[in-house]
Nucleic acid binder design. Sequence first.
DNA 1: CGCGGGTTTGATGATGCTCAAGCCCGGTGG
DNA 2: CCACCGGGCTTGAGCATCATCAAACCCGCG
Lengths: 194, 194
Amino acid sequence: MDTTVLAKHIRLKVDLSDAEIEIVAAYFIEKDLPKKTILFKEGIIVDAIAFVVEGCLRSYSVDENGFEHILQFAPEGWWITDMLSVIKRQQSVLNVESIVDSKVFLLKRASQDELFDKVPKMERFFRILTENALCATRQRVIEGMSLTAKDRYINFCETYPDTVVNNIPQKYVAAYIGVTPEFLSKMRSQLYRS
Amino acid sequence: MDTTVLAKHIRLKVDLSDAEIEIVAAYFIEKDLPKKTILFKEGIIVDAIAFVVEGCLRSYSVDENGFEHILQFAPEGWWITDMLSVIKRQQSVLNVESIVDSKVFLLKRASQDELFDKVPKMERFFRILTENALCATRQRVIEGMSLTAKDRYINFCETYPDTVVNNIPQKYVAAYIGVTPEFLSKMRSQLYRS
DNA sequence: CGCGGGTTTGATGATGCTCAAGCCCGGTGG
DNA sequence: CCACCGGGCTTGAGCATCATCAAACCCGCG
């Protein structure tokens, strides 16, 4: 189990010794996900959070008309789960799925409390993680109200890494910025002509 | 300083003795806000979070065309601030303002770490608070993409307490659900006729 | 090959915005 | 006490943005 990516990511936020990293790593379960594998399915009670070691996942909900809406993309170095289901222990409304062949490290909810006891800095790490996620999501709410679809798309291209912008199907980008695939296609052709 | 509302609210999430509540309360600063008073102004670095004891506040951003978009309403028992500014210590992009005559308790960022040392359960309390806020905000992102304006309005009326739905100007509701005041008015007249 | 999913393109239509006018109503000054 | 003001809400006509539906195209893959 290669913990390089995980260690690097955690050390961006809190200081951990090599020994501590080893303890932390022991709590994770490695899992390979071929393209289009569902990690967490709508309706279950999710009991783990996933750290993306390689590849890219997405979390999405399906509305009453069968349309998918993407809440989050998680390329390498990101975390993804259905928070609401994990915290409240209620049935999940999100699906979490790999977009390409991916590898994740899973941290079970049950192990998490034990981990916090052994390495208290990890509690701080997850608090910071949650705070950052909250800020990003609030930013997205504001953008959804103040920007046009075209500006949201431009914004998306500028903020997400190239691996997400250019290596995933356009229809997923459309489902993230909140337009139909057809309309995204029209916006793009208009952007490239000008 | 009457800490009844605050104590009741904290005890919904963590168990605190009367003695602990007293310690916690000592870290808060009481502040009265007449109607339409700005508590935190766009551009400053916000260094406190506010607990609403009575009344109702709102946080909002102003876009490049001068339109206001409301991120959050905070009636009695809610918390409000510009998280991004507090955490990252960067210039705030939100205004926080009282809608009616209100009273808040302020907790300075600097006091917060000290408070966590003296009453560790409060760190847990704020982690839970942040997690809940994240879930609620993500829910709002999904709703913004999957519901029509009319359904978002109905949803708003059903989820927010009566004090918010019926006691604040309609234009604020419009700025929250993401439509113009004119269009909200038309939706309402259509809803009441049917 | 041919199939199938993703993307493009076009015609048409719904949703929600803009601008402008009028109304309602609480507040304020003469 | 009334006249007037101003902010918020309503209403209507016209318009922009974005969705829907249908057809064609592209291209990797069996």
